[in-house]
């Protein structure tokens, strides 16, 4: 464990807790893309298949349970909670996220470190995580505005993956033979995808005005 990875995990934890807390507190999910939340639930479900078979550390197992629990809770709130579901804007959240799942699955069948069921799903979860934010960014473009909590959610998500990149650099230089191109490339792509959002988020924060994403 290194400071970058710990900072990344804490930022990631903060992003899901910020979102869960917002939805639980104000009983509204306005501006949040259910598609992105469903994709994240799939990401965690396919990445943590080894949660009961391979024990790495209490921290690792605890965090996996928190991420699984929070992502599925958010999906449950948005789909089934009688009050929250009313604020879900399904007419705007129309990104066909299955168009992301199939290519990621096919790509994971081709590019992976080992062609086993768990390894392919683990690789699939990395590719899917890289693009999972797309429905949320599309929804923001459509609704043109972003309330602070959703902005913080996306900002924290982007920051978590940026911290992980520093973690991979650190591990590359400190651990011999630590080379894993797949998570590195997927993680870099994911961080770049947040790039333009960061640009607009920073400028709106600096000029202290509501975030206006370009159409």
């Amino acid at each position: 464990m290194n400071i970058f990875r710990f900072a990344g995990d804490m930022t990631h934890l903060a992003s899901v807790l910020v979102l869960l807390l917002k939805i639980h507190t104000i009983k509204s999910c306005a501006g949040v893309s259910l598609k992105t939340q469903e994709l994240y639930a799939i990401v965690f479900a396919t990445r943590y298949l080894d949660i009961f078979t391979d024990f790495i550390s209490l921290y690792n197992t605890f965090m996996k349970l928190v991420f699984l629990g929070s992502s599925f809770s958010i999906v449950w709130y948005m789909r089934s909670h009688k009050i929250v579901r009313r604020s879900y804007d399904k007419d705007q959240d129309t990104f066909r996220h299955y168009f992301l799942i199939v290519p990621c699955l096919l790509l994971a069948m081709i590019i992976n470190e080992k062609f086993t069921f768990r390894e392919v799903l683990w690789t699939f979860s990395l590719f899917l995580e890289a693009v999972a934010i797309l429905p949320q960014l599309v929804l923001l473009q459509r609704t043109r505005n972003i309330d602070n909590l959703t902005g913080q959610y996306i900002f924290l998500l982007g920051a978590y993956r940026a911290f992980y990149i520093f973690n991979w650099i650190y591990r590359y230089f400190t651990e011999p033979h630590y080379v894993h191109w797949i998570p590195w490339i997927a993680g870099l792509l994911q961080t770049l995808l947040y790039g333009d959002f960061f640009y607009y988020y920073f400028h709106s924060w600096k000029n202290n005005k509501k975030l206006q994403l370009p159409a």
Binding site: R5, I56, K64, E113, W122, Y164, N167, Y178, H180, P183
Partner: peptide, 10 residues
């Protein structure tokens, strides 16, 4: 078998 190092991350 030693846990694959890339799978020890979240």
């Amino acid at each position: 078998s030693p846990k694959q190092s890339s799978h020890d991350e979240l």
